[in-house]
């Protein structure tokens, strides 16, 4: 069989992370629900984490794991603040459609 299929290397993980990042970008661009947009941002952060850990494994440096841990913590903080903003926005406007959020103060 083809060695690309049976012989897994670092390139596979990097391409996978690129595909996941592209799916996240598509989700941010085409969806109008702000919650789905935030989930797509999480997908992109995960893609970045996969790339970081692949490079850490490639260079044999555990520091990449520490960095990925920091990325996870930042993602958690981003989700907490972002969902709070969404709840505050929904309280005033009764929708979370990003195409209709055109003003900062409602």
């Amino acid at each position: 069989m083809n060695s690309v299929v049976t012989h897994i290397g670092y390139g596979h993980f990097l391409v996978l992370s690129a595909i996941l990042f592209a799916i996240g970008v598509v989700g941010v661009l085409i969806r109008r629900n702000a919650l789905i947009v935030m989930m797509s941002i999480e997908l992109m952060l995960n893609a970045a984490n996969i790339a970081i850990i692949t490079f850490a494994r490639m260079h044999g440096d555990v520091g990449g794991h520490s960095f990925a841990l920091v990325v996870i913590a930042v993602a958690a903080a981003e989700v907490a603040v972002g969902l709070a903003i969404l709840v505050a926005v929904f309280r005033g406007r009764r929708h979370i459609d990003v195409d209709r959020m055109t003003t900062l103060k409602y």
Binding site: H7, G9, G11
Partner: peptide
């Protein structure tokens, strides 16, 4: 890109 990947022998 995926087709051009040549994994080293001791990749993983």
């Amino acid at each position: 890109l995926l087709a051009s990947v040549k994994a080293p022998a001791d990749a993983l």
